[in-house]
Design a protein around this nucleic acid. Structure first.
Lengths: 338, 338
DNA sequence: TTGTAGGCGTTATCAA
DNA sequence: TTGATAACGCCTACAA
């Protein structure tokens, strides 16, 4: 059996109270006693039982994150970087992170929120891939569960979290393409209920308008934000009668697929057609040709989000409740290079 | 406050015992009572408190997984796919997964194992990136903690888990390259204490030997399994006096970096130099040119590992304690195509 | 078929 | 400075 606080107390012929307080660093314990207790506990391999502690303290020292899995086996570097950020920051504060996966807006997702929140499995939750109208944020607000989100929903007034300025980013990208002479600029988006899909599309339209280019519905298509999806959609664009000279993609994965489609059509990315993405994941720099993209600091954003959440949980004052980040336009050869 | 079983009982003027048993589906509860209880509980939003249940049942319904983060901000699609597999399978069985990240063999890693195991935070653990001599597996065995691993260590006799036959895979790849006329075949490996690094290198050497090609130490280099790492190491190979005609990489990420290095040296992958990787992640198919690789079913392996672990935890008999999987050689244009 | 009561391992209140 | 004791919310032997 694992050693409990009772074992330690018995071993030392002390009360469990004293042992508990000695270990938790209370100052009303004799220094000698404290040292002795600490040493013995370590020697006996004592670690406080989490369930018992949780039950008593009414907190879990755990935060939750649900991976939005569009399809089974689906993956995106964005998420692994995001998770790494969360768990590194959480680990530094002795918090654990609970991860599950569920398709966006599914029953599974709803059940997980129920289980975690009502069952007191987590002290707080990190939400990303926010939808325009997102029941998760309302649910968490109503239940007064500490939470932060990457992106905000339209429906919610109070928002604590980080927002990456997709709109300005894409607009800047489009402006850049226009400067290089492009007029036929296509756009491959994502699920329309996503906040980022909404913002990025708006940025694209704003960029065109600014340049006095009339929008062309035939040049705006939707993908599922995977490489496969980007490939299929781009193929249609490339083979259509009025082929665009540039394609702006909602994320790097779709852009990578698009580049592949361009190549398979016997064209050269960056020469015949310009391609650009959004995310700035490690791979983007190693595609052939290297991908022009809007880089967002996913890892550090995840860390900062976690930091904000931990502050909320501890009822500490937040320096900033809302942080805005501008993605950085990185111009590479896929749009002709700089 | 959240609703407890006591609230539900009081509301119905029943004892908590009856409520508990009704909810848990015992058959010594009157059908009418059961229905009433179920309905009321749902209406009141009752969800059993996990901590209390854990404490009482002495299990957590949670499994642990520690992300091996070589450096901060490091990511690999392999892991996000792996996590997706674990959490999908776990979710289906109402298990949660606890994730943390720690550099391999670090103090952090050790502390996490202590906390999780001794503190009873998890019922079992999934281990991957196994080292040749791996204290984690010994630790878990000694403590009798249910665990499964992807790959086995040399030191451990009893092994429950899955092993991908890296050795045969790479050997087959080398044989294929030799058939296509390559004699100067280089190898970019990974950290030498890793089981997969050991196996893959051995596979490479066996492939050469089989073909009667004398090993050349200058052609065997080591990377950190990232794209950046692969890029740097490959650059040295490509620019060396006796440039190889083919480079076998320990994983896709390194291979992607290597392709980039080849291109930056004014050469063409698949024409001047053949490049191949290992993993078969989604991106591999979309590189330019598409990457020859040994595909391993990461997602389904993760699911199966999880299934095995859950069986161990439940003391169910395992169909197979050790599963061996052969990676599939997928030949694409990066080695000249099929 | 339902209820009573004890305890899982901690922490916190209060008294000594 | 230390110790006895009562919760935290749930499950389950046992009694009714």
């Amino acid at each position: 059996m694992t050693t409990t606080i009772r074992n330690v107390a018995k071993q030392l012929d002390l009360s469990i109270t004293t042992v508990s307080r000695a270990l938790d660093g209370y100052d009303d314990v004799a220094p000698a006693t404290r040292k002795l207790v600490a040493r013995t506990a370590r020697k006996m391999g004592y670690v406080p039982n989490r369930a018992a502690r949780q039950l008593r303290r009414q907190r879990t020292d755990t935060i939750g994150y649900i991976l939005p899995t569009a399809s089974t086996g689906f993956t995106d570097l964005f998420f692994s970087e995001f998770i790494a950020g969360i768990s590194d920051e959480a680990a530094a504060r002795q918090f654990d992170i609970l991860v599950a996966s569920a398709p966006p807006d599914s029953d599974t997702e709803k059940e997980l929120y129920e289980r975690w929140v009502m069952g007191g499995k987590v002290d707080g939750i990190i939400v990303n891939r926010v939808r325009l109208s997102d029941w998760r944020l309302n649910f968490l607000s109503r239940r007064q569960v500490p939470h932060v989100s990457l992106e905000r929903s339209l429906s919610k007034r109070k928002f604590v979290g980080i927002e990456v300025d997709s709109f300005s980013g894409i607009r800047e990208l489009v402006t850049h393409l226009v400067k290089r002479g492009h007029r036929q600029i296509a756009y491959i988006g994502g699920p329309t209920d996503l906040k980022i899909a909404h913002d990025r599309l708006a940025g694209y339209e704003a960029g065109l308008q600014q340049a006095g280019i009339a929008p062309n519905r035939a040049l705006v298509l939707q993908s599922d934000m995977t490489a496969e999806g980007g490939y299929g959609v781009a193929l249609r664009l490339v083979r259509s009668s009025n082929r665009p000279t540039a394609i702006v993609c909602i994320n790097d994965l779709a852009a990578i697929g698009a580049m592949h489609a361009v190549h398979d059509s016997g064209l050269v990315t960056g020469h015949d057609i310009a391609i650009a993405g959004f995310d700035g994941l490690a791979e983007a720099a190693h595609t052939q040709p290297p991908l022009t993209t809007l880089e967002q600091p996913v890892y550090s954003v995840a860390r900062q989000l976690t930091r904000m959440l931990l502050a909320l949980i501890a009822h500490e004052a937040l320096e900033e409740e809302q942080v805005f980040v501008r993605p950085q336009l990185i111009i590479r050869a896929s749009t002709g290079g700089e």
